[in-house]
Design a protein around this nucleic acid. Structure first.
Lengths: 139, 139
DNA sequence: TCGCTTTTCACCGAGAGTTTCACGCCCGCA
DNA sequence: TGCGGGCGTGAAACTCTCGGTGAAAAGCGA
């Protein structure tokens, strides 16, 4: 069960845009790329997918760039993951006829757990928690 | 977030062994492979890893084969997943210095959710639920 | 029209994941 | 002590997706 780098990059991008959201200004791809240390040309592809899913908007021409289509509080990690891949949890097992039905139940259960967790995380919350992250220790 | 075929195969193998556990008889690799429709030689590698983690035992010679090291009630899906890969939830993001700390919290959260879900599923339960699976409808 | 940006397309290179093959080894039994 | 049936192991081949590049097209503002 591996998280693709693409997913990580997408989340970074949204997080970066979320930081600039209050100002209302656009963010250039160039800046976002260096700021979040994501390969520039790769980031472009990801942003296009995010835009296609209605998570981001773009403005062309001078003073152009990207910005979030909705406030960070209304964007969840699940939405971002689904934007870049089709689904949060992908497995060939559910399509494979050789997979015993008992196992499918198990995979579905994992799928559900993951979906719930991902949809419970909004970028608003991530920004807020970053401020108080030194208070608590995660393992 | 993709589940590898290997994970699926490993789970199938354990499930197959769990079915034969009550009888106490060994299961030949050959039979297990065809029964669960898993490539024979690939299954061998997986079984070796399961054995190394103390989930399965093997018997050599005539009448040889594999069997579960513990009752199905004491084997969770999480253990199986960790046996074949190092961890249930793997991500380069947690190692990458470029990943913002806020996101790490998010990934960890997903990781936790997945771990909890996987460890809550025992193969005993899967076998039991298979009998009554027609009672309920999953989406 | 010029310069700035996004947008799109085509492709590739590497690497992981998957699968197969061939042979060695170990056990139980006669 | 030899034989056979199974496991054990390593490496080779194959597939495929991911990660990344580059250049050209297209829109917008001045």
């Amino acid at each position: 069960m591996k998280l693709s780098v693409k997913s990580d990059y997408a989340a970074r991008a949204v997080l970066g845009l979320a930081r600039h959201y209050p100002s209302g200004a656009t963010v250039r791809v160039e800046d976002l790329a260096t700021e979040q240390s994501v390969p520039r040309n790769y980031l472009v592809q990801i942003l296009i997918e995010l835009k296609a899913q209605g998570l981001a908007r773009s403005v062309r021409g001078k003073e152009g760039g990207y910005l979030l289509a909705r406030p960070p509080g209304e964007i969840t990690l699940g939405q971002v993951l689904r934007a870049v891949h089709g689904t949060v949890f992908d497995t060939p097992a559910l399509e494979d006829a050789g997979c015993p039905p008992e196992l499918r139940l198990a995979w579905r259960e994992l799928q559900k757990a993951l979906d719930a967790a991902a949809d419970g995380i909004t970028f608003q919350r991530l920004l807020e928690e970053s401020g108080e992250k030194d208070k608590m220790y995660y393992i």
